[in-house]
Every structure is written in structure tokens, then in C-alpha cells.
Amino acid sequence: MKIAVCIKQIMDPEISPRDFKIDADAKNAVLGKNPLVISTFDENALEVALQYVEKNSGEITVFTYGVAKSEDALRKALAMKADNAVLLESTKEAGWDSYQTGKVLAEGLKKHGPFDLVFFGRQAGDSDAGIVGAVVAEELGLPLVSFVTTINQKDDKVFFDRVTDEGRERVEASPPLAVTVTNDEGNTPRIPKVKDIMMANRKQISKESVGELPASDFMEIISLDIPSSDVVCEFLDGNEPADKVNRLVEKLKESKVL
């Protein structure tokens, strides 16, 4: 089985809100000294792929589209024991245009493919758009299984456990396929072994320049800012609990919550 996992390097979503700043002119978040990590769902996707290969067989190639620094994300993936890594290198931060990202990835996958399974996180930890997987599936003409937590193989049938609004569902599908992965107890990303980290640092990463792409007409950011919210706290008077409840109900009606 030839497997591809597409990952994205993002600004650590766990930084303090005070360290999160936006450059309104550039219409982008300011990285500053904040750390970079692999987007969480992408790590789950890689873990699902790794577990699949361990149980069956296959070769995993990780792809990312981003600036030179994204190499760190690929090294981490290699340390987790992906076999190869491809950096589709742009000279500018990739921005928020999922459609464009999807097209770049699709080109890369075509060039190195064909792949039997192409994995994505269900959505990126920064934009939370959840579009790239579907765009790539479309571009490559592959069926898409979304919100997958685990993959099992019996004989030559592949089963995908997925999360739906109603609960869980098991789907049988045959590769080639695109898959988006959501988090689950069973796919918590592994901690790499030190020997593997050291090996990963010595591995060759294939880098292909995609230059600076013109903005697509798929989407345009008009403005970007951090929403502000106010919290007002009010104590309700009243001697008896019943008084307080009545007053609370009134207030809630006033503010149209009830």
C-alpha cells in the first residue's frame, strides 16, 4: 500500500491569548516568538496511517506545503516513522486559501503518486476550515471518507470507522481513497523514540519549490481581527431563593435568552 499523509505546520494553538496578535494590513496572524507545531488532527491522521502500516504493510510519505521552516514538521513526522517526506516549498506563508493549498498538494501527490490512501486531518488547527482534504480528493478524482478514527483490514477489504452526527459508523471502501481523520483515544499521536529522532534528522527530505503563487479567486480575506467579548457580572438581590429565581427568569426573558 502506498500511503500519503498531508500535514500542516501551524502556530501553537495553546499559546497565551496575550501572545496572539494579528497584523491587520497583512491580514495574517503574527508568529513572533510563538512556537510552531504540527496541526493536531494531522498528527492523528499520521498516527492512523502508521498504525495501519504496522498491522499490514505499506510505505508512508508525508507532504506539506509551506515555507522552509515547515521542514521541522516533516522531521517530526519522520521521527514518528514516516518513510519519506516532501516539502512543497513556497517563499511566502501559505495563507488561508484552502483551495490553493489543495491544488498545490494535489500536484505534488500526482507527481509522487499514485497513492492508494491519502490522509488529511479533518481540519487545520489554525483556520479550522476543513476544506483541503475534499479539494484534493476532487482534484485527484478520489472518493473521500471523512471523520475517520481507525482503519482495519480483513483480507483485501478495508474498513473505516468514522464519527457521524448520529454516532459511529463502519464503512467498507476500496482504495484508492482520500481519508480525513478525527481524533480518538486510539489515535493519540505517538511520542517518537530518541533513536528515531536522530535518524530523522539525518534523512533526506525532497524539496520542490512552488514559488509564490498568485492569490486564487476562490476566496479573499476582506479583514481579519480578534473578536472582542465583554463579560458583565450582576448579582441578583432577594431574600428567599424563590425571589432570586423569579428575578433570574425575568432577567433571562429581558435579555431574550428565554
Partner: peptide, 8 residues
């Protein structure tokens, strides 16, 4: 356990 097995 930590560095060779990553089991902790």
C-alpha cells in the same frame, strides 16, 4: 523506557 521504547 522513555528514549528507546517511548513507553511512559
Amino acid at each position: 523506557q522513555v528514549m528507546e521504547l517511548a513507553e511512559f
